[in-house]
């Protein structure tokens, strides 16, 4: 038995373990309706989890002209972003929503389907 009940160094610290409850599609719906602006405390907590360094997937939106945005990934060592050519959006809100769904999939373990 380790300190505070941890049995292995690889065990996740419950204070930092990302947890997205797949049942909380109500929070996803709140975000979809208003990605920018005031959020409920529960949605903000979910976003804070998604946006941690280990969970954020280093996503970025790259403007490609004509008010169009392409989702991409920030790379280390000053490399240019890796662009996801198939993911083009005509608003920042739609780009943010695509990022949200990617993170949901990774952290909740299932595709996000809004009721």
């Amino acid at each position: 038995m380790g300190v505070f009940g941890r049995t292995s160094p690889s065990a996740r610290n419950p204070m930092t373990a990302p947890l997205i409850d797949p049942a909380r599609t109500d929070l996803a719906a709140e975000y979809r309706a208003r990605p920018f602006g005031r959020h409920s405390p529960e949605l903000q907590a979910m976003l804070d989890t998604m946006r941690r360094a280990e969970n954020c997937q280093n996503l970025i939106l790259v403007g490609i002209g004509g008010n169009r945005w392409m989702l991409g990934e920030r790379l280390p060592d000053g490399e240019p972003p890796r662009l996801f050519a198939g993911e083009i959006f005509t608003s920042l809100e739609d780009g943010e929503w695509a990022a949200f769904k990617r993170r949901w999939r990774a952290l909740a373990g299932s595709e996000l389907v809004l009721p």
């Binding site: 990605p35 920018f36 946006r51 954020c56 996503l59 970025i60 403007g63 280390p76 000053g78 990022a99």
Partner: peptide, 30 residues
């Protein structure tokens, strides 16, 4: 350049970092 670097950018900014293709060009020319 830092907006194009990995990290928890949104915890400070509240939104995804945004750049354009001229910023991408900058990244190609360290």
């Amino acid at each position: 350049r830092r907006r194009m670097s990995p990290g928890p950018f949104e915890l400070a900014m509240g939104a995804l970092p945004t750049v354009d293709m001229i910023d991408v060009l900058l990244a190609q020319h360290p």
